Computed example of a mutant assay.
Amino acid sequence: MPHKIPESVLVVIHTPALEVLLIERADRPGFWQSVTGSLDAPDEALIDTATRELFEETGIIADGAGIVLRDWGLSNIYEIYPVWRHRYAPGVTHNTEHVFSVCVPRDAAVTLSPREHLNYAWLPYLDAADSCFSSSNAEAILQLPNHFKAE
């Protein structure tokens, strides 16, 4: 299996009322997060990665009309958790994560990939931030009201 590319997207899915969709990792029950995923190829466009991961992990389709992915122009560099470093090339310890959001109706159908996630929950954004295991995910959720006003 090829090594993962240490560049990824984080997609914060929310409603107009700032309820945030969190999904529980299948490989780490109790670890809640937004949609995340690495580039499939070094030249894959970030918006394409975000669109693909959004669909693969939730079944939500960013159609460019009613459901539009927003690139925040924000990147985080963080240390990869040791438990997941074996997925990357030897010596790779950090990942660059690019933040996106998407506003969806509260009744949007969510279809999880059972290979990746066990459960999902809609939470008010402050509760969602408190529930994330990833500090960069929590920080993005806390910034959501500022980015949603601009939409």
Rank of each mutant, 00 (worst) to 15 (best):
R25W: 13
L22T: 13
I47L: 11
L21I: 00
L54K: 05
P42Y: 05
V68C: 09
E56Q: 08
G73T: 07
R52S: 11
T36H: 08
L74H: 12
P16A: 13
T49I: 07
T58G: 07
R28L: 13
R25H: 12
D43Y: 09
E7W: 02
E56I: 03
G73F: 04
I23C: 07
E24Q: 13
T15W: 00
T51N: 10
V9N: 04
A45E: 15
D71C: 06
S34V: 15
T49W: 00
G66A: 08
L10D: 13
D48F: 08
L69T: 10
L46M: 06
P6F: 01
L54P: 04
R52T: 11
T49M: 00
P42G: 03
E56R: 00
L22A: 00
A26I: 02
E24C: 10
D63L: 11
E57T: 06
V35Q: 02
S75G: 09
V12P: 05
H14G: 06
E7R: 09
H14E: 04
T15H: 00
A50F: 05
I23S: 00
E19C: 03
G30I: 04
S34E: 14
G59I: 10
T36I: 13
A62W: 01
D63H: 08
E24L: 05
D43A: 11
A41E: 14
V20K: 01
W32D: 07
Q33S: 12
P16D: 14
I47E: 15
G73S: 09
W32N: 03
A62L: 01
V12Y: 10
V68M: 15
Q33D: 15
